[in-house]
Design a protein around this nucleic acid. Structure first.
Length: 404
DNA sequence: CGGCCTACG
DNA sequence: CGTA
DNA sequence: GCCG
């Protein structure tokens, strides 16, 4: 139900953080259902669908539309803020500032002399028409080939993995996310900078926001070794040439566009290999899935989860990291493989935004790790249980299967 | 009635 | 403030 | 707005 997303957006513009979140949760639950809701009975007992959201749904089911939603769609302020925030680098605050100045269109922003755009926003406006167009799976794969070639030229043993929405089975996305890693610990140091340099040499780097590893020896003498490796990531805009895209459709572009290329938003992340499982988890899940997982970690397990590790607050160490260190096997391969297999048993759906079909194809090609290692088994067991215990979509799907 | 993900620049 |  |  796109309606819930619209209500969430409207709440966000009204600075109502709570309702915004509630509507997003509701949207997430509805998206995870195997089919569209036909009557109110079908959503009995589902989480995050309370009095208000149900009332809106009833309105739509009986009249085909909701008065409140129609009102929001027509609202001048909502339309303007939606337009402004669609620009890369422009959030609710900046959009609000422009709206209060009486500005209503993108052209008015660009012609207003008193407005100072930052680097991100300048890129956002410069490539606006391209970036706001959907990216197809074929285009994502084409970019994967280009980047992979560049990466292999630098480090032949490096592995590039498609993550984000495309890994969840989506056909279109607003950007393309990749994870880049090397089998040997530490060899990923500086790799990303090297890759960026090569992309620049090739003339396809249109914009680059690099977030280098924040390591400063003078600044953190007290910090432990474990704390220093915030892995590298970068937000890019790349130039994708026509003819590099496979398939009969080729490039996504407007009729009458004869440039022969388009700009695409690309994210590159380069974690050390022992953090691969966490990076993959973090960058494959949707925004909402990540929130659910991290909330669960903190509230239910007294742990802290991020894209690098799972931190146990009671034990004061990185719980899985210790286990990972003590095993000779590339343990992340094993945990992701089992996790993926477990997920697919229960979640045959692959085509919605909120169901991260955790990727296992790459692992399938390699051998099945030998059993009998108690560390492997323990990590696998805890990891699987952890995910399943909080997977909102899992709960929803389970509910549909057994309670209706 | 308080909390709502967590990290980076 | 913005990005994921 | 929904939940614990």
């Amino acid at each position: 139900m796109d309606v819930m997303e619209e209500l969430a957006e409207s709440s966000e513009f009204n600075e109502s953080k709570g309702p915004c979140l509630a509507f997003r949760q509701a949207a997430s639950v509805l998206k995870s259902l195997p089919s569209a809701v036909r009557c109110l009975g079908a959503i009995q007992g589902l989480p995050w669908l309370g009095e208000h959201t149900k009332a809106v749904m009833e309105e739509i089911l009986t009249f085909g539309r909701s008065f409140k939603v129609e009102e929001i769609r027509c609202d001048e302020r909502y339309q303007a803020l939606k337009l402004f925030t669609s620009v890369f680098g422009v959030g609710p605050k900046t959009a609000e500032k422009w709206y209060r100045r009486g500005l209503r269109s993108l052209k008015e922003i660009l012609t207003e002399p008193n407005i100072q755009l930052n680097r991100m926003q300048r890129a956002g406006f410069l490539y606006y028409s391209d970036i706001s167009k959907a990216v197809s799976k074929a285009e994502a794969e084409a970019l994967g080939c280009i980047i992979e070639e560049t990466v292999h030229w630098i480090a032949p043993d490096a592995v590039l993995a498609l993550t984000g929405g495309f890994r969840r089975g989506k056909e279109y996305g607003h950007d393309v996310d990749f994870l880049l890693t090397v089998p040997e610990m530490g060899k990923e140091e500086g790799l990303l900078l090297h890759v960026i340099d090569r992309l620049r040499d090739q003339g396809i780097l249109l914009y680059c926001d690099h977030q280098g590893s924040t390591f400063d020896v003078s600044k953190l003498p007290s910090c432990r070794f474990e704390d220093m490796d915030h892995f590298q990531k970068c937000f890019l805009i790349l130039r994708l040439e026509e003819g590099q895209v496979e398939g009969e459709r080729g490039l996504q572009r407007d009729p009458g566009d004869s440039r022969g290329w388009r700009a695409v938003r690309v994210d590159l992340v380069a974690p050390p290999v022992d953090r691969y499982a966490f990076a993959l988890l973090g960058w494959t899940g949707s925004k909402q899935f990540g929130r659910d997982l991290r909330t669960f970690a903190r509230k239910e397990r007294q742990m802290l989860l991020d894209n690098h590790a799972l931190y146990d607050k009671t034990k004061r160490n990185y719980s899985y990291r210790r286990l990972l260190r003590r095993t000779s096997l590339p343990i992340w391969v094993w945990s992701m493989w089992s996790l993926g297999r477990e997920m697919h048993k229960h979640l045959p759906l692959t085509d919605t935004d909120t169901i991260p079909t955790l990727y296992i194809q790459y692992i399938k090609g390699s051998q099945t790790p030998s059993l009998g290692n108690t560390f492997c088994h323990e990590v696998e067991r805890r990891f699987c249980r952890f995910i399943k215990a909080n997977f909102l979509q899992f709960y929803t799907f389970w509910h549909v299967l057994f309670n209706i």
